[in-house]
Design a protein around this nucleic acid. Structure first.
Lengths: 349, 349
DNA sequence: TGGTGTGATGAAAACGGTTACATGAAATTC
DNA sequence: GAATTTCATGTAACCGTTTTCATCACACCA
């Protein structure tokens, strides 16, 4: 049925050991033998059995990625980054996304053990208890967008949520806004916490006399719409949403109130999803290099896998970029030009 | 170091065979033995070695997905659908995307063999020769969005590109348009071919006296912009783009020509990416149930894997839906309302 | 009581590779 | 020319699991 190393050995007239050596580029093999083996393997279309190999080598050359139930641009960009880096490191990617509960996430992790050399974890359920329970210490793991309280036991990467949000507040203040409302994400979400913190810090440092006007949404367009209506009651001159989808919802709430952006209310988002520049008006937002987050995380993981002894755990913050478009009233062109550099950008830490 | 079945056997005072039987729910095991084994396994935190198991069982409980280098909503939706169905069938997902060339795709397939029980293939490079060369006949495989010329050797799924494009032409004609230009995708692309065919068929059946006005883009926004300019030279009353991104590019080309949509020129796209309803004006397009495509494909594959003897290869077409918004001039509301049903929809075959 | 069926258990053979070690021939050294 | 090194190759052990087959105790039946 399937052709094994024995078949190749027989066909080439050598032992299985020689086949293994020849095919794996071991040095002590005659050129003639190597050629005959190569030819036989080629002819028989021999493909080594991955499981058998990893049984003895204790390497699967695969890493697992545990991702939350997210869709849209964020998700695809993240995977793109991860996948690209994985291929560069010769690693396979075992993907498990869209798990809604902590139990599901735990089950996914369980079933991955023994199949992967390392783990990439981004999950809203990934608190300390969860990690302690479900992450084996001898399996290299890298975390994304989680608070890592475990004594720096795991490498952690996250976008500079605080810096990005701060920069946005500073920009809005520089545009002359004083009453800046903030529509945050769910309080349990780590990114949401960080962005709220950035908003607070920004307000405190740039507008110490102004009151912080903060509402809690849940990152969905619908909640942006709902909270946008609430926010308008505070008569703000600018509304800063913790992500772009909420900003979209907020935009329609503003319109429904008979107001226009940016003339009556300035609007800003966070993430810079592709849609942001096609809105009317184009949305001022904070760009997060998501693909880069994914590929950096995987590169870290690859290093941890390849040389566990010399690898040092670290905590990395990826810079964000302020992308100024029209919705904040800073400038006023209207038709997005295709493939042009998006807008003036300011990079944060 | 790692705890194996032997350690559990020793701890429970039984043989490895009994441990295996107890843990895998074999019937001929005493309740007492089973309990002791369970306890020992629990205590030692034993997790079976996947590679060792799949070496003997010849099952990896994983399927591979070979996807093209695409990003954005299409990609994430597809993966979501696949992943969801995979979890439902207890299968792991080995992902390999973003391979640019046929060689890379071939290499990816190569390195997956022996690690997966089945293969999900969507690739622009997946023509007959490629498939014959790189797909082993004893590895169940399901194809998406490819022309399957191999005597129905593989199950194939694809959206109803022809029907969707036809329906759009019919709708535009019903709106009173006679000069309907079409900006297609790259001629080598299968989806592009089908959508062009749908356009042609639609024109022939509904507007037999009108000339087909067809241009070739490459599915990018930029080409939509470029071809949009060309299309305008043909003084069309409607432009139908083979995907939404090109429609976006086309929209800006129309604006730059000093014309407006839909008053001067009607515009339509294909795919219904999330962005489509947020454009100004909201884009009339053809909705493709991408997640469903992915999950259906995986379900087919799971069936093929689980019962290869009774499985029958099939060819499935997933219905598309006409989504009528404002860009075609059919109606004229303007602000997209959040979470509302998108628009009147017409389902095709 | 002796034969027989039954059901739990253990020993050992797979699965398909890699690699330590043994072997023997050729090359090198004296 | 004998001793010794070198080096390509083969033999066999091993990785961790499942599963076949043999074994053995036990209850059952005549």
């Amino acid at each position: 049925m399937t052709v094994t190393i024995k078949d190749v050995a027989k066909a080439a007239g050598v032992s299985v050991a020689s086949v293994s050596r020849a095919l794996n580029g071991h040095q002590s093999v005659t050129e003639g033998t190597r050629r005959r083996v190569r030819e036989a393997a080629e002819r028989l279309k021999y493909i080594p059995h991955g499981a058998a190999r990893s049984l003895i080598t204790r390497r699967t050359h695969a890493v697992g990625a545990l991702l939350p139930d997210l869709h849209g641009a964020f998700f695809s960009e993240l995977i793109r980054g991860i996948d690209l880096a994985a291929r560069a490191h010769g690693l396979h990617l075992l993907l498990s996304s869209s798990h809604g509960s902590a139990q599901e996430a735990a089950a996914a992790l369980q079933s991955m053990r023994g199949r992967v050399d390392g783990l990439l974890v981004m999950s809203p359920h990934a608190d300390d208890a969860f990690l302690r329970e479900n992450l084996s210490p001898n399996l290299p793991s890298v975390l994304m967008n989680v608070r890592n309280g475990l004594g720096h036991q795991y490498t952690t990467l996250m976008p500079d949520n605080v810096g990005g949000a701060r920069a946005m507040v500073e920009h809005l203040a520089a545009c002359g806004h004083r009453r800046i409302a903030f529509i945050g994400g769910p309080a349990v979400n780590f990114d949401a916490q960080e962005r709220l913190r950035g908003y607070m810090e920004g307000m405190a440092s740039v507008l110490p006399d102004a009151t912080a006007l903060s509402l809690e949404g849940d990152f969905t367009e619908e909640s942006g719409h709902r909270m946008g209506r609430e926010a308008l009651k505070l008569s703000p001159s600018a509304i800063f949403c913790a992500n772009d989808m909420m900003a979209i919802g907020c935009l329609s709430a503003i319109r429904e109130a008979g107001l226009s952006v940016p003339q009556d209310v300035a609007l800003a988002g966070f993430d810079d999803i592709p849609m942001a520049r096609y809105l009317t008006p184009p949305l001022t937002t904070v760009h997060v290099a998501i693909a880069e987050l994914g590929s950096s995380a995987l590169t870290q993981l690859a290093m941890a896998v390849e040389s566990p002894d010399t690898y040092v755990v670290s905590e990395q913050t990826l810079p964000t970029e302020l992308v100024i478009r029209d919705s904040c009233g800073f400038r006023a062109t209207s038709v997005p030009s295709p493939r042009g550099r998006p807008a003036p950008a300011i990079t944060t830490a």
